[in-house]
Amino acid sequence: MWRMIAETIIYLIMACTSIASTIAVYLTIKEKDLVKAVIYSALQSALYTIIYFLLLTPDVVLVYLPVAVGLIPGVFLILISKTERWEKE
């Protein structure tokens, strides 16, 4: 019986995390301050690593992690510092 409860809990966690990541992506697109948009994108990547981990694939997680959490915010912050920070209409 504990096995069934554990499986149901794991699927429930995957579902709730997917919904939360969709909300984070929506906030990324609608935000006008570009530094906050980068931070929402890092939040979405952190939630995606939870989903990829629960699907038991370690190689996908090990590649997704440096790219989406480490390099993408770094490259975008260099880009924002050289152009503009507030998105105009």
């Binding site: 890092a42 690593t49 370690p58 090990l62 992690l65 440096p66 959490v69 915010p73 770094g74 912050l77």
Partner: peptide
């Protein structure tokens, strides 16, 4: 064997702090 994922996660979040 899935415990190896935890170490790069901790390291890259430190890097994000330093970028900001």
């Amino acid at each position: 064997l899935l415990i190896v994922i935890a170490i790069p996660l901790a390291l890259w979040i430190y890097a994000l702090d330093i970028y900001i």
